[in-house]
Design a binder for these strands. Structure first.
Length: 407
RNA sequence: GGAGGUGUGGCCGAGUGGUCAAAGGCAGCAGACUGUAAAUCUGCCGGGCAACGCCCUACGGUGGUUCAAAUCCAUCCACCUCCA
């Protein structure tokens, strides 16, 4: 087997530290990298994924991209699906106990996961593993033994547990076991590095402790920030509705990126693109100085992200479409065409074509001047459209369009 | 086993018999403005009706009291707290 060769330590550390929140600790990482170069052995990098969230979004991609960095440097990246721990439910950051998943749900989710994950990770070299492989075998004796290595007091150092305890919120015993099992994963995989979101820090550190107890060299812990979502406030999550899914359409990825607050784009540049940091700084300076418009800077970002998950031409198209629709008020290419009769009042038309959800809303929209027909603002909610050969272009608000053929 | 509390529109949260389609906030939608689906300001924000008004449905479920109930009573359900 050929010995792998790796870039110099400094170069590796620089890439790995980019965008990271915690690195515990840097010295140890350097040692591990040094040794890896000397022996030609890649580091084993572990990242755990909860199998309950199969719809990945850009927030998840921050972590996946960090994994990719390790991959690009030639290290061995393990994508660990918490098939066993998923049945328990990670208590991190939760005010209430999570629902437990059953085996079948987890299996379905795993497939969806793989399809999305390889949009970022290298399919050839990624090792996918499942922690029920060893946790299933652990048995109750093994589990009790494992639990014997940690104390309640140390567990209660965690903020989320402490708060729930103080507020008389229930904490199930199995939730206390979760960090221990996650730490045991690191032992089983002999991880050199474990990656996670910054909210995972405490869990990751438990892994370090357990490894030390086991007489192993503890893993290095590296965390990445939680990406702030479209609203510019909350962390990105599907349930908050401020997410961009990895599988969304080009125009959606583009448009949604354009809707983030201007200030947020620098974070996104750092965490979601490979743009060199000094280049990002330069852009930021230019925008501050007025040499570059925030819109242009954001469009570059949107283009890059769209191209990343689709193609260059898709991204270019999304950009042109955005300009056409929002800057010039035109209609997008894929505007649906529907048919209508000449005696149908406007409000009914809007409801039937799904441009409004109720007659009441349709009426309201017309009254507020949100509806235009062929570019002319409509004022009469009840006026029908006259029959003619060319279709009408109906626009509601800024981004809802329908072509209507009236005959 | 006992005592008590809570349940309001997508979410949070006021409201203790009529003036309540229900304050306020968030989210959402729209208009103005703009380089943006940014920011800001303004308006809207249950449904039906050719419609600045009329009607219907709604405050955990059901059934009552009353001319009148989100508000009072009974009962059921759900969640929570305390005592044992």
């Amino acid at each position: 087997m050929n010995q792998a060769s790796f870039p110099p330590v400094d170069e590796q550390v620089a890439l790995l530290e980019r965008g990271a929140v915690d690195l515990i600790d840097t010295e140890q990482l350097r040692e591990k990298l040094q040794r890896s170069i000397k022996t030609g052995t890649p580091l084993t990098v572990k990242t755990g994924f909860d199998p309950s969230a199969p719809d990945l979004h850009l927030g998840h991609s921050v972590l996946l991209r960090k994994m990719k960095h390790f991959q690009d440097l030639g290290h061995r990246v393990i994508f660990l699906i918490g098939s066993f721990t998923g049945m328990i439910g990670d208590p991190t950051g939760k005010k209430a106990t999570r629902p437990q998943l059953d085996r079948e749900e987890i299996l379905t989710n795993q497939k969806t996961y793989e399809r999305q994950v390889f949009k970022i990770l290298d399919k050839e070299t990624t090792v996918i593993d499942y922690n029920d492989r060893w946790l299933g075998k652990l048995g109750s004796d093994g589990l009790v033994k494992l639990a014997g290595r940690y104390t309640l007091a140390r567990m209660m150092e965690r903020d989320d547990f402490r708060k729930r305890f103080r507020d008389n919120q229930p904490i199930s015993i199995h939730e206390l076991l979760y960090p221990l099992l996650q730490g045991y994963d690191s032992i089983a995989l002999q991880a050199d590095v474990e990656l996670g979101g910054t909210d995972q820090l405490v869990n990751l550190l438990v892994g370090r402790d357990l490894m030390k107890e086991q007489g192993m060299e503890p893993q290095v812990v590296l965390t990445v920030p939680l990406l702030v979502g479209l609203d510019g406030v909350e962390k990105m999550s599907k349930s908050t509705g401020n997410a961009i899914g990895l599988e969304e359409e080009p125009t959606e990825i583009f448009g949604k990126t354009m809707s983030i607050p201007d200030d947020l784009m620098w974070d996104w540049y750092l965490l979601l693109t490979d743009t060199p940091e000094d280049e990002i700084e330069e852009k930021r300076r230019q925008v501050a100085a007025g040499d570059l418009t925030a819109k242009a800077a954001k469009q570059q970002l949107a283009r890059r992200l769209t191209a990343r998950y689709h193609s260059d031409s898709d991204a270019q198209y999304a950009l042109e479409e955005f300009e056409r629709v929002f800057a010039q008020g035109g209609a997008p290419d894929d505007t649906a065409t529907m048919a209508a009769r000449p005696d149908e009042p406007l409000t009914k038309l809007l409801v039937r074509t799904k441009l409004a959800t109720s007659n009441k809303e349709a009426h309201r929209l017309v009254t507020q001047g949100a509806v235009s027909i062929d570019g002319e603002r409509a004022s009469d909610p009840f006026a029908p459209l006259e029959s003619r050969s060319a279709p009408y272009l109906i626009k509601v608000g800024k981004r809802r369009f329908v072509r209507l053929e009236v005959s």
